[in-house]
Write a protein that binds this DNA or RNA. Sequence first.
DNA 1: CGGCTCGAGATTGAATACAACGCAAGGTGC
DNA 2: GCACCTTGCGTTGTATTCAATCTCGAGCCG
Lengths: 265, 265
Amino acid sequence: MAAQFSKVSETDRIGAICEALRQAIIEQALKPGMKLPEDTLGERFGVSRTIARQALAQLVAEGLVEHKRNRGAEVATPSWEEARDLFDLRLGLERVVVRRLAGNLKPEQVKFLKRHVAKEQAASNTREVISVRLATEFHTILAEMTGSPVISRYVQEICRRCGLTLTLYARPHSSDCAINEHISIIDALVKGDADTAIQLMEHHLESVANRALISPVEVQSPNLMDMLSPYADAANGNHANGHAALPRKANGKAKRAGAGKHRAR
Amino acid sequence: MAAQFSKVSETDRIGAICEALRQAIIEQALKPGMKLPEDTLGERFGVSRTIARQALAQLVAEGLVEHKRNRGAEVATPSWEEARDLFDLRLGLERVVVRRLAGNLKPEQVKFLKRHVAKEQAASNTREVISVRLATEFHTILAEMTGSPVISRYVQEICRRCGLTLTLYARPHSSDCAINEHISIIDALVKGDADTAIQLMEHHLESVANRALISPVEVQSPNLMDMLSPYADAANGNHANGHAALPRKANGKAKRAGAGKHRAR
DNA sequence: CGGCTCGAGATTGAATACAACGCAAGGTGC
DNA sequence: GCACCTTGCGTTGTATTCAATCTCGAGCCG
């Protein structure tokens, strides 16, 4: 997947790099906590550190990357609470979308949506990455159909952040019924039944979120020390903590999985 | 749980410059369409063009500044449609906020809100800039009270963009009733009546948005350097008393950008 | 007289250079 | 042997430099 010297976007290399990184992040090629050194990125994309830095800044603004001063950037690791907040926000935004679209879809738009859902169905048995991407695209397509760049932008951003949280907290494969829900939403939109469409969207997003977020999954923290601190405290004489006896899984990965040194050219 | 404006110390000058520019924009010291040359900003804030550039990029991401390739940055001029979209989004977001807060406000939070509304009332006869800022702060304070940084961030951003559009399309002063609406919202939140609170918020935002009319705006301005004085001083804290303190290496070039050089397009 | 072309100045785009900071390993004194 | 300091390396933060592009006005030609 070399995004090397594509003539496609000779201008706006920053945007191209952002898009590449976004894709890599939501498809888990870059996992939360992974370091993103500026010069490595610059080298990989054939630009100077300046450009890589600006791309990273953009992704920080979008919430996909976290940045600590003098310590560089890494793929964001949203907390569980943040995940919940993001899905709440998403619902708030998509409600706006649905309300606007109800009864206002043009025939070719309906056709386009149905074709998209068909693609979702076709992909439901293949690689999960594909079906997840298509499922997300359904929502961004809806947002774009409002014709509002602003709405579209925010919905996209939140959807991507939700996608990132799902990579952290969702258990594999639970998007089967989602496709039917997409169909129901289209139907309600065509009928112009805004309230029903909103309710369906509400139910849809809640079920997506609940399948994923029902229980905080333990995620391997990029910061081993923080993770171990309760156990360390207990080991130091205070064993009031019930989990104190939990055996440390000597996960000898003291070194966090890093982006390594890509020497690409 | 106040809006804790951290005195962003000497580090993070970018953030400080962003904040200064944000304030200047929503208070109309910088009007839509006004050019924001990088070196002028850098000179004014005592940093190099690099930093000014990054601050501008941040504001572009927030929608307060528009950037055209090779033609520089200027204060955004949102279209009327965009204004409508922004208020729709804002309603969607604030609905989330209100739903979360209904019945969950702690006594000291209620007290804080009431004290804020009192400030609004006290300021309603003074300079309009002040009362507009306080009215906006009411909403951002509510968002912060959700305890969610994500929600707070998006609400803030959208509120600021709405403030910018009001700058363009709202006619002066009719925010008297808004204060009473704020009080009603607090009451509903305290009672835990989420639906009523949402309806009140809906009505409130709609009435704010409806004050928007098509009124021609002429956008011109004489001197960026002088205009930024109060904001720059606030951002720079100690240095830059009257004029920018140049970085250590005294580069003697110091072009007089302010004197007579700024034509207003 | 008007439109067109070209050039100087100004401004942005991007890369490089250098300073500052953090982390980690190794050395030193007790 | 242990704690603390020092030093070296890698990475980031910021300034500066050079190239590319735009603006706008003067001069030229039809």
